[in-house]
Nucleic acid binder design. Structure first.
Lengths: 320, 320
DNA sequence: TCCGATTATAGTCAATCTGGTTATAAGGGG
DNA sequence: CCCCTTATAACCAGATTGACTATAATCGGA
């Protein structure tokens, strides 16, 4: 392909300028509910990268604080998109979106008008396996995916679709892999089983209702990317603690991990792993607010972040 | 901070436009040497993202092919930078750099004038621990880092620097962690032990020669990011095979992994892990070109990429 | 042709890690 | 005082890991 670029002559320089958008997946966990911050019902906080911003990160922080009143703590870059369909309105200018994952605690949220926390399982109901495989998978997605697979013109393509669906959703005792959030969303998109897929104009008609709340533009895809990253990261880096109160019980910590992973973990094993890694220290206090026998309170040993830099934290989420 | 952006009135819209640069870390391994593709001696292939490009990836492929004649296979996004110091020349326009990691085989390289393969250990001599800790670490870096640590004004800061150096380089039997490539480079930068650090104008004078070949702008930092990502990724995803010839012996595969990781692995264990994961299949042929007893030839089972999608490949690089 | 150098391949063994279960402790509420 | 709930400790078997040993097959020269 001819990408010469200077073809347009002297004026060509301006033609390649782009707009850069910053967009945030802001996550908090409030008693067992993994929540994501939105503007209104279905829009992730975002705004253009401006000349005043010192860096991408500080630009992002500024936008999120302005739009939601939520100050951000931990931040990491997710991905940069620039698809053909992401085109700015006037002058055919292209838009690049730089997405970030941010972790905070909901309590910090000052009440901003349009800011709104919602469980991410509202957007991805098929991702919560804490009480076993959810009905939406067995009753709705599986039959429709099988139907979609059968809809392929050639036999080879039918087998291929079948296999992809089975791998992504763990059919035929393949086991559920909680990290495949993005693959699952993209598969559903391809099978036209999420609302966003119908926007292309294909069948704008009112078909059967589709599972999960949809979002503006490709925001749900970006959210899926963020969830996938977080589910992967909690297994080898102590990022869960960014979501915890300063002091917590081990069960509360476990519930937070389970909320993120969308699956349950074995209690004794969880405690063993946490304790032997010296990630936490006892405060000396206990709390009776948990119901039964008083539980010891712990705090995160921030010092560990320097000692073990990136070395590798483990959580019992290895295999199904 | 005031990031209102519309402050500049009608003309303000243009003010926030940016240039987007694509930049590639292209890696190949040729008998035990992990090589990186450069233009001339010290520049990574790169070019602006243009309006004609279908996507960021295809833009990157176009630039690398044009500049080096090297077609790319596997590609993954690394990171997007936009620091204050990365400012375009005229009109105070900002530049965003979107970096990618690409894996190929050197043999594909058609001879382009300025394209050039070089061992990445030329740029990072302290990263190759295949024959034990390299002299440059013990004889040069350690004493200079200790000196740097002692140079801190306060006692607390001195301990802190000491600790950071020890963690990054594995001093005091902390063990070498091959994944900390970026942390090590940034530490050396901070300690002004790499040439790039002196460019700020601090001490432009000719001090003691600094270890490792330097690169243009922040390219060495981007290369460090790429190496770190690759060293991490080979442990859980079968990406090594993108660097192998279609047919290879298990020892050749092992040598490639060792070249990337910068450390040796145990031979029987390596074979066991590769075989039990069914990543490869025998071709039925053997080769005597390896010296001693003829070795079986294997090929990568591409089918595994679909079966185990992202599920997790293992290599015996777990702990020191 | 036989020996030694070199590399390939198979097998063994102990230490550790993992997932799971069971038992005991300590609160609160009827 | 009993029962329910949750916390905490102890235990066990199977899998995984790291490291080592032994045997097989080829080549090059003495």
């Amino acid at each position: 392909m001819d990408a010469k670029g200077t073809r347009k002559g002297r004026a060509g320089r301006k033609a390649n300028d782009v707009k850069a958008d910053l967009i945030a997946v802001v996550v908090a966990v409030t008693d067992g509910h993994p929540c994501v911050l939105t503007i209104g019902q279905a829009t992730l906080p975002s705004g253009p990268f401006e000349f005043d911003h010192r860096s991408l990160q500080s630009g992002l922080r500024a936008w999120v604080e302005r739009q939601t009143g939520q100050p951000l703590g931990y931040i990491e870059q997710l991905y940069t998109f620039a698809d053909r369909d992401r085109i700015g309105d006037e002058h055919q200018q292209r838009v690049i979106s730089i997405s970030y994952l941010a972790l905070t605690r909901e309590e910090y949220a000052s009440a901003s008008a349009k800011c709104c926390w919602g469980s991410w399982y509202d957007y991805f109901p098929w991702e919560d396996h804490r009480s076993g495989t959810p009905p939406v998978v067995l009753d709705i997605l599986r039959p429709r995916l099988i139907e979609w697979a059968q809809g392929a013109p050639e036999a080879e393509a039918r087998r291929e679709r079948q296999r992809r669906a089975a791998v992504a959703f763990g059919f035929d005792d393949r086991g559920w892999n909680e990290e495949l959030v993005l693959q699952r969303y993209e598969l559903l998109y391809e099978a036209a089983l999420v609302e966003e897929a119908a926007r292309g104009g294909q069948h704008a008609g009112a078909l059967a209702p589709m599972p999960g709340r949809s979002m503006v533009a490709d925001h749900r895809r970006i959210l899926a990317t963020g969830i996938a990253r977080l589910r992967s990261k909690i297994k080898y880096r102590p990022v869960v603690f960014e979501l915890m109160a300063p002091v917590f019980t081990l069960l509360q910590l476990q519930r937070t991990v389970e909320a993120l992973a969308g699956r349950l973990v074995n209690k004794p094993n969880f405690r063993r792993l946490i304790e032997q890694q010296e990630l936490v220290e006892e405060t000396g206090e206990t709390t009776t607010e948990t119901g039964g026998r008083p539980a010891k309170l712990y705090r995160f040993r921030r010092a560990i972040l320097d000692e073990t830099v990136i070395a590798g934290t483990k959580l019992p989420l290895a295999r199904g």
